[in-house]
């Protein structure tokens, strides 16, 4: 393994920072004066939920080697949010149930 010098590492981190920031900020600067068509606005609205869906699946099944782990956690989160609990309680509840699952099973 080739060890990077600390100066190279710092420059590399700076480069990473720049290429990460550009896609984040560009739409805010680029689309200021742009009025999207209603159809495209609807797509952008749906993209929010689409990205959420893509962030959940298939990742949730791969969280641990045991696929049941993600299934149980996901089900608990679903039930807790379905009965109307706050998101923080949903997160803590899922962690709690999986903690018990890990310790006792």
């Amino acid at each position: 393994m080739k060890k990077l010098t600390s100066q190279t590492t710092l420059l590399m981190i700076l480069g990473m920072a720049v290429v990460t920031y550009i896609p984040r900020v560009l739409p805010f600067l680029l689309f200021r004066e742009v009025e999207f068509s209603p159809f495209f606005k609807d797509i952008l609205k749906n993209i929010r939920y689409a990205i959420l869906g893509a962030l959940i699946f298939p990742g949730i099944f791969l969280v641990q080697d045991d696929p049941l782990f993600g299934v149980i956690g996901g089900l608990v989160a679903f039930i807790l949010s379905y009965i109307g609990l706050d998101v923080v309680l949903v997160v803590i509840g899922s962690i709690g149930v999986l903690y018990l699952y890990t310790v006792f099973l």
């Binding site: 959420l52 990742g59 969280v63 956690g73 949010s81 962690i95």
Partner: peptide, 11 residues
Amino acid sequence: IALYALFIGLL
């Protein structure tokens, strides 16, 4: 599981 639970809780 936290971030997945978060995504589900938001959705």
